[in-house]
Amino acid sequence: MDAAFAHAVRELLAALASGSEPTLPVGGGLTRVLRETGAISPRAAVELLIERWFRAPPAHLLLDPGAPLLNRPELGESEKLHATLREHVIGQRRWQELSSNESTFYRYRRAAIAAFCERLWAEIVDRPLPSNLPLPEYVRFIGRRHEVATLLRWLCEPGGTVVGIEGPGGSGKTALLHAVADACQDAARSWQPVVNHGQQFVQLFDAFVWVACGEGSGLATVLEAVARTLDYPGLMARTLEDRRPAERDLLSKRAVLLLVDDIDRADFAVWTFLADLPGRSRALVAGRRRLPSEVRALMPEPLEPAAARELLLAEAERQGVPEMGRALAEPVEVLRTAARYPLLAGWAVGQLRRGQTI
């Protein structure tokens, strides 16, 4: 568990116990978990989580004027942790009202806060993020940080539900799709807001749907990918006319990032669907042809020479021939080609590995 996270949660609970009403940061996993309870305040959200995660003592014991709750042998540990959080943190009751012994109270207070921190941490970092993303064809993403930052910024901003990447084959469009998806997945599992190059927060998505379009791919291709990834296979038995509104309803209830590769091979119905995504769902598309004017799109810039050299070395290492990477990283023409068409770096290494020319 991140030490800063544990400190932030302890401060939040201490503020609630003292009667304060703390404000939450604008974004991040911690804020999202609290807001997803539907509560109107941090105090109400924490109370709902306590009820969800810990076993409550029997109601009649809360009204019993006998021994304090933390001194009752008939209560289990989870019930005593619940009592500490619910009565002390939310109800602001003093230790004398919960235990006959101060050290016993503080022992349970430490244990209860630690247990709440652990459960909240797991809720953030182990958050299920439905995804059908294929494995990328690279070991690590190299360069083009400006393009990634721009696409992340556009996904956060108003101005349409579709953001695009356009350019010739081999220019790195698919790799950019993967890089943006990776950044969004990391942000979704971060407890605090992830800032995109000192500007906006990275958009938090709940699921990631990858669609690889073939020639003439229709809306059914997209709807099938959405239904399978979000685990609603029963929708595929419906007619296309019935599936479209049903899946729009799904996309309105959670923030889904659709990543559509080779969008220019799909038919117009796909564009119509993506251009009208509901709620916080968005689409990031890539194609070889010029995208429609209403879509904010960029064309990847050539890699810097140092990045192109690093890419060649990484590809050679991935294919088990690091010495060939060092040889390829020297000729200027090879570097220029790899900078403009990163996909050719892997091809060039493969050619040399097989004893062929490039």
Rank of each mutant, 00 (worst) to 15 (best):
A220C: 03
I124H: 14
E97W: 02
G172F: 00
Q203H: 14
E310F: 09
E294M: 03
P22C: 07
V162A: 02
A14C: 07
A4N: 07
S103D: 09
P134F: 02
L12R: 15
E87T: 12
P73D: 05
I142W: 02
V148I: 06
L151A: 04
R244M: 05
A44H: 12
I263S: 01
R248Q: 12
A338H: 03
R243G: 00
A237C: 05
L291A: 06
V256E: 09
C156E: 06
V270R: 13
A149G: 06
W154K: 11
N132C: 08
R72T: 02
A175Q: 02
V162Y: 01
E11P: 11
V46R: 06
L62R: 15
L235I: 09
A8G: 02
L176N: 00
G91F: 02
R110D: 15
E215K: 08
A308F: 12
A39F: 09
F268S: 05
H146I: 09
L70K: 04
L120Y: 13
G19Q: 13
A308P: 12
A316I: 01
L352I: 13
S41P: 15
L62Y: 10
D64N: 14
P158M: 03
D261N: 10
S252K: 12
L12D: 07
W210Q: 05
F268G: 03
D242L: 08
E21Q: 15
V89F: 12
E301L: 11
I113Y: 15
D249S: 10
